[in-house]
């Protein structure tokens, strides 16, 4: 293998650096003593703002709401996404393509269109905006993440495993529980983690489907538009990075390991 030329290496490393430098700055600003502006370099460093955030009930309430919404939306997405994947992974029928397109639609369309459409639908059905309208909005676009992961794994699952299970006396439900579920488990877990991260971070659809509730991204957005508590926002930003970082890293290793296991049978 030849080595890459110097300009190519610089461009590649530069591209990756571009992706990571803003995140490093967020980390840096969480410790700044500056309160009124985004002055660089920070005049001094302090841990004080972590303590302040720790004591802020409104932030904890937003975190709690976001976690609750993400958990329930993920569970809903897991059920609906797995069902959809089971129906479409290995079948061919008229109308299959439009249906699989439909599952992708909520992330393919601009979030604002999905948000307004759902807002109007809730209005028409006279459903008051609440915790549950946020959850339904999030589940709508989380389904596709679970669906994609589950479909990919189901397609790698040899169909003769399911036949073998039924051949040995297991009915459809036993086969699902004892054979299919254990084999797609890590893919579902990975899909669920990504769905969780997606929901935890979502702001656009939430803007339209939330009533008076404030999820963490909604709180963050209001701070972005009208900065009032810069140091607190700096710390919250770091916390959000950490909370989304962990499930994504876990999802990555889960799908990688799954591939290794599935591949070793060949």
């Amino acid at each position: 293998m030849t080595r890459a030329s110097l300009p190519l290496r610089i461009a590649a490393v530069g591209g990756l650096a571009f992706l990571h430098i803003p995140l490093l700055f967020i980390l840096l600003y969480a410790f700044t003593t500056e309160e009124k502006s985004y002055a660089f370099p920070p005049p001094g460093f302090t841990l004080k703002w972590f303590g302040v955030v720790w004591g802020r009930a409104d932030i904890w309430a937003a975190v709690g709401l976001s976690l609750k919404v993400a958990t329930i939306a993920t569970v809903l997405a897991l059920v609906l996404g797995t069902l959809a994947a089971g129906a479409l992974a290995r079948t061919r029928f008229f109308g299959r393509e439009p249906i699989s397109l439909l599952f992708v639609l909520p992330i393919a369309l601009p979030g604002i269109v999905t948000g307004i459409a759902l807002r109007q639908a809730f209005g028409l059905m006279e459903i008051p905006f609440s915790f549950w309208t946020i959850v339904l909005g999030h589940a709508t676009f989380c389904i596709v993440v679970v669906y994609n992961n589950a479909v990919a794994r189901l397609r790698r699952l040899s169909p003769s495993l399911i036949e073998a299970s039924m051949d040995l006396g297991a009915d459809a439900f036993q086969t699902f529980r004892l054979i299919v579920l254990p084999n797609i488990g890590t893919a579902l877990l990975a899909g669920g983690m990504l769905a969780f991260a997606l929901s935890f971070d979502e702001v656009i659809v939430t803007t339209f489907t939330a009533g008076q509730q404030s999820t963490l991204p909604i709180w963050m957005l209001s701070e972005l538009i009208r900065p009032r508590q810069r140091p607190v926002t700096n710390v919250v930003a770091v916390l959000i990075i950490i909370v989304t970082f962990l499930p994504i890293l876990a999802a990555y290793y889960l799908t990688r390991e799954g591939e290794a296991v599935a591949g070793s049978g060949k």
């Binding site: 040899s158 003769s160 495993l161 036949e163 073998a164 299970s165 039924m166 051949d167 040995l168 006396g169 297991a170 009915d171 054979i179 254990p182 084999n183 296991v261 599935a262 070793s264 049978g265």
Partner: peptide, 19 residues
């Protein structure tokens, strides 16, 4: 259905349950 038949199969790819 297959699970109600008194026959069993040895599959070409063996179809052993990997887990």
């Amino acid at each position: 259905p297959p699970y109600r038949r008194p026959v069993n199969t040895v599959f070409q790819d063996y179809a052993l349950f990997p887990h």
